[in-house]
């Protein structure tokens, strides 16, 4: 199954990915305050289809990694 990984301390909590995800499978992690002082994005754990939309909408170079196929994860 495809999935994403949010690198917590590279996320600025802007919410662009959450808004853009067609599957609505990303949410804000209100329990975590990262090193930059933001509530980072968090993968809900299921629903990702590996479309890569969140990756291209995210302004930070290293905040989101998208694994389109299961085996490479």
């Amino acid at each position: 199954m495809p999935k994403i990984v949010v690198q917590i301390d590279h996320c600025k909590g802007c919410g662009m990915c959450i808004d853009a995800c067609p599957q609505k499978c990303i949410e804000e992690d209100s329990d975590v305050l990262n090193k930059l002082g933001y509530h980072p994005a968090k993968y809900k754990g299921e629903g990702c289809i590996g479309c890569g939309i969140c990756f291209y909408t995210c302004p930070e170079p290293d905040a989101i990694i998208v694994y389109k196929k299961d085996e490479v994860a």
Partner: peptide, 15 residues
């Protein structure tokens, strides 16, 4: 590892 841009800045996307 992170940019100096504001959260949600278009510069980051284009970069």
């Amino acid at each position: 590892k992170n940019t100096h841009y504001c959260p949600g800045c278009g510069h980051g996307i284009l970069h």
